[in-house]
């Protein structure tokens, strides 16, 4: 289900400076990896790079999901990879404020045709129900922070992606909502065997991960950054 991740010599530069320089990082399929680090360390940049979102000219190195090096793909292929394989929870929700919860969660059905699109809409509804997001035709902007975060999570899970990338999914939530969201996120990843990479400062979220690495000043600092050698092999299905 999940895909193995293999990163080597990943350098992302912008505005004449190096934002991140990740020598070596890996995650086995279905692993849940937490990333922590001070503000401005490059955590979001790292997640964007994993999703193939950094402009081609500003990144070098290897980011391989399964057998595909996302940095080597053309923009169209990257987009297809994202829509089929990656579920991204953005740092500040990034919802379409005018649309309702269901329309937001199933936004990708607009550009996903046929049976896949229909399945996506059904799954989005299921996720919203499972996450206990209130129904109705209310616009996203009328939802509370916790509800919005859950809509964003439902959107990330709607395409049933093999990979979940979550950027501070519990920021600005109270303890109770936080706990529920962590349970939902980790539960979805574990039950679906998805590979999860979550950026967070939240001890509760980090505690639910298989392991946690730290980024400081654009580089991995914790020696445990490297995954078990089994995951590093290029064997995949």
């Amino acid at each position: 289900m999940g895909l193995p991740l293999f990163v080597r010599s990943l350098v992302v530069a912008a505005g004449g400076r190096t934002l991140i320089d990740i020598a070596d990082f890996a995650a086995e399929p279905g692993a849940c990896v937490g990333i922590k680090g001070p503000s401005g360390a490059g955590k979001s940049t790292f997640l964007y790079a994993l999703a193939g979102l950094v402009p081609a000219g500003s990144a070098s190195g290897t980011v391989r999901w399964g057998g595909q090096d996302i940095l080597a793909m053309r923009p169209g292929a990257r987009a297809r990879f994202r829509r089929q394989t990656v579920g991204f929870v953005f740092q500040d929700f990034l919802l379409f404020e005018e649309l309702g919860a269901a329309a937001n969660a199933s936004i990708a059905s607009g550009f996903t045709g046929g049976r896949r699109g229909r399945a996506l809409r059904v799954r989005a509804e299921e996720r919203l129900a499972a996450l206990k997001v209130p129904g109705g035709r209310r616009a996203a902007r009328t939802f509370s922070g916790g509800e919005r975060q859950r809509i964003a999570l439902a959107r990330a899970l709607a395409a049933d992606p093999a990979i979940i990338l979550a950027d501070e999914p519990t920021a600005s939530l109270d303890a109770e909502t936080k706990g529920a969201l962590i349970a939902d996120l980790v539960g979805a990843a574990r039950s679906g065997g998805k590979t999860l990479v979550a950026v967070s400062h939240d001890p509760a979220l980090l505690a639910a991960m298989d392991r946690v690495v730290e980024i400081a000043d654009g580089t991995l600092t914790a020696p445990g950054a490297t995954a078990p050698s089994a995951a590093r092999s290029d064997v995949h299905d």
């Binding site: 297809r80 829509r83 550009f111």
Partner: peptide, 11 residues
């Protein structure tokens, strides 16, 4: 955001 979610340019 649409592009980040994987939407094609044509969309």
């Amino acid at each position: 955001l649409l592009r980040a979610l994987g939407a094609p340019v044509r969309f």
